[in-house]
Every structure is written in structure tokens, then in C-alpha cells.
Amino acid sequence: MATIVLDGVVKAYGKNPVVRGLSLEVHEGELLSLLGPSGCGKTTTLRMLAGLEHPDQGTIDIGGTRVAGPGVRVPPERRGLGMVFQSYAVWPNRSVEANVAYPLALRRLARSEISERVRTALRWVRLEAFAERMPHELSGGQLQRVALARALVSNPRVLLLDEPLSNLDAALREELRAELAALRERLGTTLVFVTHDQAEALALSDRIAVMNGGVLEQVDAPERLYHAPASAFVARFVGGANVLPGVVRDGVFHCAQSEATFALPNEVARSEGPATLVLRPEDLELGTEGTPLPLAARLFLGNSVEYRFAVGTSLLRVVAPPMEGVRTGQVLRIRARRARVFAAP
């Protein structure tokens, strides 16, 4: 049974459409990421789920109940959701304990039960020792955990997370990501997670909904998204793939405005004519075979090296093991081990 159903949801700010006919189901207990570049409508979608925005068209059902649609507008406080904001939104005038207790206090629970549940929630996020502290005494990561505890304390049926990790530094992000995964195992809540970080989405999600320009590009499990992107956009955004315009002729891809050609592996679907070639940087091979191109730049990445080439007006990136004695300007041969071809946009 689907916990959340969005059907034909449209939202515009003034004349500026942000979400254009979005239909999506989030299953009970799953973690679904909304992934896309900034301005793709993912945060607006989340805010419509929360009840902070109202869709212009379409309907939203949560747990079989209509919460938004023509003539229906359930306010956020009556949707029974938890939400973690990008800016933490921890109330500066309340202690950690008071922040987490707030949703329960509004439900007029007994004081003993409130303190019991607050303690449990703080244990979940490992902040028991900080209950008495004020927010300005906490670090960014701790504040984010307070926000998480506050969102979880009332056992919401759905937890919404709006780029919860984007304001943290890399190490903290890693740590909180792991904690979030562990928490989710334990609680089994349905989670909707907004992010623009594809690594984060791939690591955490059961399924990922990739959005672009207010529409869904693809909804799939992380592996499928990575290995079988439905569009050049998904391939580029999720896998960091090279996207080259050109023409397919006799099983060979001819790049536009360039002499470069790529022989297509046999398993690749090859309708003849104008097309878009998608090549993952790690699927390309430098050696004695393939199209010759002069090396434009060389970026040392640690365990590998990124080699950059100019193909027409596009950039071609190849990630390969370090090679001795390669200089910029030197002509190297490039071969594609794997490739995907999409019809030209």
C-alpha cells in the first residue's frame, strides 16, 4: 500500500511554473529521495507534502487520506508529519529538551510521558547529555540532530527531510548519513529525502526520484538508476557521465563539430541518425585503440587521474589509472568499453 500518492501535482509561483504535473507514489516504510539540481522543484514538492505550500492542481493523499486537492487543504499541523529543515530551524530561545518536547506539549500529553519520550528521542540521536543545553551552545551537527529528534519524537507516519546534511562539513555529513541509515532501520518510518547530492541519494535511498525542470525524469532503485539511466540528464546527473551530441552512422557515433568517433559496442541499441552519446568517465579506456584526441588537462584525484579532452564544444572526461610520462597536448587514443545512445533531444 502506498503511503503517499501525488497525482498530477502542479505548482507555480506567479507565472513561474515550478512543478509541472508530478505523479509519484511513496511506499510504506521506504526511503525515497527527491534528487535534482537546484530549482528543479524538489523542495517545493516536499513543502507541498508538508502542507506549507498548496498545489495549484492535482491531489496529494497521505495514508489513504486526501490532504490537498480541490476543496481540500489540511494544514501542516494536522498532517501528523515530521520534518527536518535545511536551516535546522531549532528554536533559539528553547533548550534542547524544550525543543524536542514541543510537539508533545502541543498534544497535551502527561508530563511524565513527555519527559520519557523526549529522553528516548534524544537517545536515538545520541544527545542525552545535552538535554539542558541551549541551541547556541551546540555545533551544526548537534543542532541537526536536535531537529531530527524533534521530528521523530511524536512518531510521525512520514518523515520529511529537506537537504538535512547540506549545511554540514564533509566528515560530519558522512557520520550523520550513517546514523540516519541506522535510525531508519530501527524506526521503519516512511522517509522522503530531498537532496541535490547524488552520492548521498545513492547511498541512502531505497528508490530515487530524479527531477528536472519541474518534471520527473526517472524513479528507480539506485542501482537501476546508475546502470540503466532513462535519459541523458539522469546519466549525467547521477553518474557524472559525458554527454556528447552527434550522429550514428553504420554502428559508429560521429561527434558533432569534431573528428572524434566512437565505435559502439554491439549490445548498444543503434538506430541510425542524430543521437546523444552518454559515456561514463570510468567506462572509457586510454590505449592504442580508438579515436585520437589531444589531452587538454590532467587532474590528479589520488587513486586515479581524470584526463580531459575537448570534443567539439563539449568536455570529455576520462577517469583512468595514472600513466607515466603523459603531457598535455599529447595525442591519446580513447575507446569506449560501454556506451549508451539516446535519441537526440
Binding site: 508538508a50 502542507g51 506549507l52 494544514p75 501542516p76 499541523e77 494536522r78 498532517r79 508529519l81 515530521g82 520534518m83 529543515f85 535545511q86 536551516s87 530551524a89 528554536w91 514541543y102 510537539p103 502541543l106 498534544r107 531537529a147 524533534r150 521530528a151 511524536s154
Partner: peptide, 16 residues
């Protein structure tokens, strides 16, 4: 004022 402070209160169950 960070507006999400108010929004967080709404989602916690507080009316406007």
C-alpha cells in the same frame, strides 16, 4: 527571522 522556525512549529502541531 528564519521562516522555517515557524514552519517547524506548524509541523509540530501548532496552529498559525
Amino acid at each position: 527571522l528564519d521562516l522555517s522556525l515557524v514552519e517547524a512549529a506548524r509541523l509540530s502541531g501548532a496552529g498559525p
